[in-house]
Design a protein around this nucleic acid. Structure first.
Lengths: 148, 148
DNA sequence: TTACAAGCTCAACTTAACTTGAGGTCAAGC
DNA sequence: GCTTGACCTCAAGTTAAGTTGAGCTTGTAA
């Protein structure tokens, strides 16, 4: 028996745990692809499941859809991403995570030092005014909104 | 000579490094307070500087304005927050930061384990589908949008 | 007293990442 | 053949945290 290769949006949604509307959205953003049946309905290849999985993980790591899209562009057209592809992406993303963690640690240590101090001087307090972006990084919408 | 107690919005903006529009916004959200001159202009007490400082630090820690507002509500009315007040808030926030850091670490370790694995099975991959909210926490807008 | 900077209000716009809704089509079972 | 659930498109709404702009008022320095 021939393997069921094609998936409908509903099936992809169910298997990936992502809403149908989100899948439409990803497709509009160019993160995933589909072809259409004669009746204009979407059909997805199996590779879409892995792509969606990658998208969600990357999002949890704090990477924006735009960045994820750019990374996915680097993958060969319409092919199921291989282990090697995933290797490259996840390594890069892990490094980003590492950075984010160390920034948060700095912030925490700063907070710890300042507990009991209460100075909060704009000029003197080590927590303030030292041009650090720290936790601001990678917070999605907030980033663009907070930066001027 | 009597100390200059009152500050205009512009002065607060300059001293706190926050835009005038943001101060208006914080006031509309109830995070800070002012009284008005006969000509309807805002005047701030000195305590506003410390409040704004607290607000910005908390934001860097990834706390939403809504949460910050709630925390500030617990401070005595219109009084300059004391060292003790700051102590309580910063300790709580640092604990939150600690949690966030450890969640990110878990994510990173998961990523590391998965590098070279490439399985990404929804059922089996340790990175997926285990009900962890991880980095999603405290990402402002995304939180409400992503949770259904 | 007259500029002109600084303030005021209020509405609308911005970004990311989706969701919701309206109005219409497709497909599969009975 | 008909009902029903799954799809489709496209526009508009949502949230957070502000920013921008228009139109009008205050305050202050020369």
């Amino acid at each position: 028996m021939a393997p069921v290769t094609e998936l409908t949006v509903g099936q992809v949604a169910a298997r990936s745990g992502v809403a149908v509307s989100a899948l439409h959205f990803y497709e509009a953003r160019g993160l995933i692809r589909s072809h259409r049946t004669s009746g204009n309905q979407r059909r997805y290849g199996r590779d879409v499941l892995r792509r969606v999985a990658i998208i969600r993980i990357a999002q949890e790591v704090g990477i924006s859809l735009a960045e994820i899209g750019a990374a996915l562009q680097s993958l060969p057209e319409g092919r199921t991403p291989t282990r090697e592809d995933w290797n490259l992406l996840s390594t890069a993303w892990r490094d980003g995570l590492d950075q984010k963690i160390s920034q948060l640690k700095k912030l925490r240590d700063g907070l710890t030092d300042c507990i009991g101090c209460g100075c909060m001087s704009i000029d003197k307090c080590p927590l303030r005014n030292k041009g650090d972006r720290l936790a601001r990084e990678g917070t999605g919408a907030r980033r663009l909104l907070v930066e001027r």
